[in-house]
Design a protein around this nucleic acid. Sequence first.
DNA 1: GAGTTAGAGTGGTCTGACCTCTTGCAAGGG
DNA 2: CCCTTGCAAGAGGTCAGACCACTCTAACTC
Lengths: 252, 252
Amino acid sequence: MPPGMTESPNSHRTMQVVDHVRALIENGTLQPGDRIPPEREFARTLKISRSSLRTGIGYLAAMGVMKIRHGVGTFVADGPPDLGKGSLSLIGALHGFQLWQMFEARILLECHLAALAAERGREEHHAAMAEEVAEMFASLNSPLDYLIHDVMFHRTIAQASGNPILAAIMETVTSSMYDKRRKTVERATDLRESAEMHREIYRAIRARKTGEASKLMEQHLRMAQAAQGMERPAERKAGLTRKGRAPGARSA
Amino acid sequence: MPPGMTESPNSHRTMQVVDHVRALIENGTLQPGDRIPPEREFARTLKISRSSLRTGIGYLAAMGVMKIRHGVGTFVADGPPDLGKGSLSLIGALHGFQLWQMFEARILLECHLAALAAERGREEHHAAMAEEVAEMFASLNSPLDYLIHDVMFHRTIAQASGNPILAAIMETVTSSMYDKRRKTVERATDLRESAEMHREIYRAIRARKTGEASKLMEQHLRMAQAAQGMERPAERKAGLTRKGRAPGARSA
DNA sequence: GAGTTAGAGTGGTCTGACCTCTTGCAAGGG
DNA sequence: CCCTTGCAAGAGGTCAGACCACTCTAACTC
């Protein structure tokens, strides 16, 4: 109502940058792995200050859309999708997420992922899984190495599922538990048993036995949960409910 | 140097801020809804420049941990957990997520959520669900209002599940489909049928029939998927365009 | 030829000034 | 008395330019 109103340059420079980049990505100009122009140049192009541009880029980097490398340049993320992997632990601390809730989510996701992998996995995935299982058996004396291949095995299953969204979600959940697992695995005494369970899961997936893959995965994860000494207090487990998509998992 | 852990204490002012806030949150000094000190003052406290402080805060805001209100202050997020709700669409565009994949994830999550809600839901949740169902029947002539209560109904189920992690994940997935749904619902002709399905789901949950709740939810979502005219295509193309990247680039 | 170093290019940080928005309060008008 | 109006304090947002830190390359030295 008062004078003012001189000009209306879209406020929120940050969002201006985000929207611009979003447009570049959606119209295909920017693809995973591509480098964006240097900050000074890009800022001049968008007619905003370098610091505002940096705010926007930082925002995108925080979301995992861009990857910044000091002294080299800024790139569009090219690895596996990343949904706030680093943030879940913070969010969790904020809202008081419990470990049993993490496992509940993880079990749901990974069991379904295993079933999907059994249904859709291709040769290359089977080969990658076999490779990781072999590495696990070869790392029985080196817990840290074992854990790495353990993670890779589960990640391969996620890839084999053919659903990158579910894979990204699983990655988010599991990565927030990684620190705890590193400590737990140190004093693990039954890596061989663990490795054999992985091998069985692999075999079920390769044989395209969706129900069995899912069931074995659940068994494996519940054991892992117990190993972390974190059973859910005063509650009996609720088995997974299999839906029509894949043949039933007669788990019980 | 291999991908060791975090970096030195002084490097990366951004992470310095993030870690400081993380500590404040984890030790309970900062709780949801709390306000953090003004930028100028906070920067002085941490002995860094205001711009660096702002970079760090922006990072936290992008992760959904903090909420910034221009002219008012910066607060710790207090609403429902938020895992990159806004970012999934960007990540999706980047990695070419398909709509059927979204639905696959959504169906998995919501069916399990419904089952959990049937198992653990309390009176208050049942009341809230009933309320939303009633509102849906009252909004049959107003698609936009209907959609709002539709979303609220599903959100209530997620709350009733007793697992905030799964609820947050569901929120992330569904929110990225919201825009499309707004357009779809406009020309919807069978809102009454939809409302009745919701009522049935509600009844199953209230009766603690886990299997039926899950089954009805799946039925409901598959119908929604069909309504968006997006059945899974025969096969997706697997053309991957890998270009040269910066030297020394590694992928995980 | 192998190792070292200087430079260019890129992101990271600092400073301090000014702009915009929100809010609360106080002065003025009904 | 109550409501409206307007201002000012305080918060975040933007800007500009200088300088620092890191990487990589290429020319230089031994």
